[in-house]
Write a protein that binds this DNA or RNA. Structure first.
Lengths: 327, 327
DNA sequence: ATGAAAGCGCTAACAA
DNA sequence: TTGTTAGCGCTTTCAT
């Protein structure tokens, strides 16, 4: 790569003038500008982000931290983020953290080092102190997950209400023995959705039985299958399942199908997220739709606003119950 | 963030000595090292990647370019890349390009600017010149896709052979009317798999009928459904389908199920990739397994080798036919 | 309108 | 063993 010096030399001006041309300062004579532009083209010059950042502290790069890329839930959000960010002149770097504080720290430091201008965080809060230390000095917003007691702006949905409505729907179609397949409760959404589940059960005078509640560590189909297998082994089997993620619900569905029970007649099932695969199963899956693309767009808008020094308000978006064949 | 100067001041040494401590140079007295470490901790100091890169031209960051994160095919590869790279002290930045040359160019420039040390490219070759210009001066390797006429090292599988075996398997179970649901032929793998399909058909004296060949633009379930719907509308319907991706095969399967035909009795179907979903469908999907995790590990090893200045050889890995219920 | 010079944070060469 | 100095590529005063 050519440097600004070489361009300057070729154009017969100083580096300062080249810099002015690059940054569209208007104090450059048209003729000089032309010569510089010419030299830039001839040398195929690209300004070094490194040198520029070191001076300016701006990279126009955004970090998006997700626990795992294999969860289809994140893909739509990321599409929203990308479309919006690119439209505003920012680029996206996706960072998979595995919810590992060490890996998270590395990416946090990229912002401290001005390698990136801000972070959209979708991880659960693993290290509050580290997170808030960063948030004090650098732009960060949370998407989907957030820290209940913190001051960091976020965009999310009302998980408790959504879960409540899901379970209520199962009860309304006549199912009284509703099981819950939950995620790891390190996730706020998992705690909130359990709470919604309990609220609905209580409201209809149904008992909250720990024998009908499972918590999984991994968010894969296999986890859903395993959880369901274990539920089916209970002497007193549930006749409905609320799974906090479509992926889990699909695994559960597979397990129910494979032992010959009918969905929804024997066991009804409802998922969460409305991932595209949820419409490919047999029967198709009832689920809660989150406005994922919109969440992504809003996250991007929020973080860029914050980078520009504006205040941003947290937002809670609407969800929707999508009734399909599995209930 | 504290700077190296502040640490030096606090420890009562020069910046150079701090730098030596940071980089584990052994020419530092134990006592001095302790004082410096102490100061680093007290100030919560983190070295600036920016300053370091500018000096060293090393970032220990790897760029992974993929067309789309929503394709589960890439997730296992990325897991392999991450595990290997992190083990060797490198971090990963995921870049979604949409196969858009402009977005690709932005990420290419990050390497030119030394913001990242190298690129693992999974995109199809959209701009050969740009790609080879970059490859001349910077470490890059290709994974899965590669440029047939280029000099860039790659790791992939024998797509033509795999497709040939898939189609042969369909023919062997008595299906003579084999349809092909292919991807956009801008992808090399799509061209190779079509070629394998044709080879198998020819070998068994079967006609290659364009009415049984579909090409989709998007790699979603819906594309598979649409392609299948269109195939089912043919007066002379196929009795087997080879889809070049599990995602497409799953969409096709859904479509066949939904009009009441039986798989595999009426129509057999085989996919490609062995994504985790492919085992959740009803019936489960016969598919070709690629060693995706291994491909990721090898890609990472190759690019790091290349960064270190070593020569690396291209590699073609083995695949495997996984026979399940859909055939 | 333009150039010279300083400095962002860091490391390597050289000196002591 | 440690410090001094120069310089990576860029932008921004301050002069001219």
């Amino acid at each position: 790569m050519a440097t600004i010096q070489e361009v300057a030399k070729k154009a017969g001006v100083s580096a300062a003038t080249v810099s002015r041309v690059l940054n569209n300062r208007n104090s450059v004579k048209e003729k000089t500008r032309m010569r510089v532009d010419q030299a830039i083209r001839e040398l195929n010059y690209e300004p070094s982000v490194l040198g520029r950042n070191l001076r300016n502290s701006e990279s126009r790069l955004l970090l998006v931290l997700i626990p795992s890329i294999s969860n289809p839930f994140y893909t739509e959000i990321i599409n929203g983020i990308e479309d919006t960010a690119i439209g505003k002149g920012y680029n996206i770097l996706l960072c998979e953290t595995d919810s590992n504080p060490k890996r998270e720290a590395i990416y946090f430091n990229m912002v401290r080092n001005r390698l990136a201008d801000g972070i959209i965080l979708m991880d659960p809060t693993v290290n509050r102190k580290n997170l808030h230390d960063l948030a004090c000095k650098h732009p960060i917003i949370q998407c989907s997950e957030f820290d209940e007691n913190g001051t960091i702006s976020y965009v999310t949905i009302d998980n408790e209400l959504a879960a409540y409505q899901a379970v209520k729907h199962l009860i309304k179609i006549g199912k009284k023995k509703v099981a819950l397949i939950n995620s790891d409760e390190k996730f706020l959404y998992a705690r909130e959705r359990r709470s919604g589940y309990e609220k609905a059960m209580k409201e209809f005078g149904l008992p909250i039985e720990s024998k009908w509640i499972r918590s999984v560590e991994q968010l894969g189909f296999e986890s859903g299958q395993q959880a369901m297998r274990s539920l089916l082994n209970e002497a007193d089997m549930p006749n409905a399942v609320f799974a906090v993620s479509d992926v889990l619900a699909i695994g559960a569905l597979k397990e129910i199908n494979s032992i010959g029970l009918k969905v929804p007649e024997d066991i009804a099932i409802i998922g969460f997220d409305k991932i595209s695969f949820s419409n490919m199963t047999h029967p198709t899956l009832t689920t809660i739709a989150q406005p994922m693309y919109k969440m992504g767009c809003i996250s991007a808008t929020m973080i860029i606003d914050k980078i520009r020094g504006n205040d941003v308000e947290s937002l809670i978006l609407d969800h929707e119950l999508i009734i399909r064949e599995s209930t």
